[in-house]
Amino acid sequence: MTTRTLTRRAALATAAVTSALVLAACGGNSDDNGGSGTGHTGHGASAASATPSASAEAHNAQDVAFAKGMIPHHQQALEMAELAADRASSPRVKDLAARIEKAQDPEIRTLTGWLKAWGEQPPMAGMDHSGHAGMSGMMSEVDMAALKKADGKDFDTRFLSLMAEHHQGAVEMATTEKQRGRSDDAKAMADAIITAQNAEIKEMKQLLGAR
């Protein structure tokens, strides 16, 4: 047998062993990742098993209070905003109300999801807000009744005045969350609420001043 033939056979044997090792390694990764065949060995399984405990530990009592308070607070803002479509006379007031609905409705869903993940009971939708009358910025039943009866320019003025006060309450609640909360997601939402609602407060004051 020639030296050239021996060399060729040795190279083929080496290639076969290498291929077997690669296939074994790939098979191991697929098993460790639930058959996905992607990611680092064991990472997918570890992350999945750690998720529940991580979710439970990544918040504190302030985060729960923030979510439970902001849900009815937002719900009342939506009730106020929905009235504007038929009662407001100013296109700018109608536009503002529509933007408030668009921003706060998804936040309610997010806050509700957090509470469920934390093992907490979310406030019921459509609940009577009289029990939250002492919450910062919440409108009284008398104020809400008066707003529902108002129309045209009278509605615009009442809406802007009441919503500015309502927004200020939300900003105060969000500021407390940023200072005392633990959940990064909740504090990020609080920061977004502060930025957006302070801008809307400024806009409402300008609209009131122009009347």
Rank of each mutant, 00 (worst) to 15 (best):
S53Q: 14
T3Q: 14
K153Q: 14
A174M: 04
I108Q: 03
D86V: 08
A61C: 06
G39R: 05
G44V: 11
K116A: 13
A13N: 05
K116S: 12
G126T: 08
D185E: 15
A133E: 12
L115C: 07
I108H: 05
A61G: 05
L162V: 00
D184H: 12
E172A: 15
D128Q: 05
S130F: 00
F155H: 00
G169W: 04
A65R: 14
A16I: 13
A20M: 09
D154G: 09
A25K: 01
G27D: 07
E101P: 00
V64P: 04
K187P: 02
A164C: 07
A58N: 14
I194Y: 03
A56M: 12
D86M: 08
I201P: 01
M124H: 12
G131M: 07
D156M: 04
K94A: 06
E203Y: 08
A81W: 02
E82W: 10
P106V: 08
S36N: 09
H59S: 11
S46L: 13
L96A: 08
A25H: 06
D63H: 05
T112W: 02
W114P: 04
H74P: 06
C26N: 12
T112E: 10
R99E: 15
T2C: 09
D128L: 04
H74T: 10
I71F: 09
A10N: 09
H59F: 03
I100E: 00
S36R: 12
E200H: 06
G119C: 04
T38R: 13
A58Q: 10
E172P: 01
M163C: 07
T18I: 14
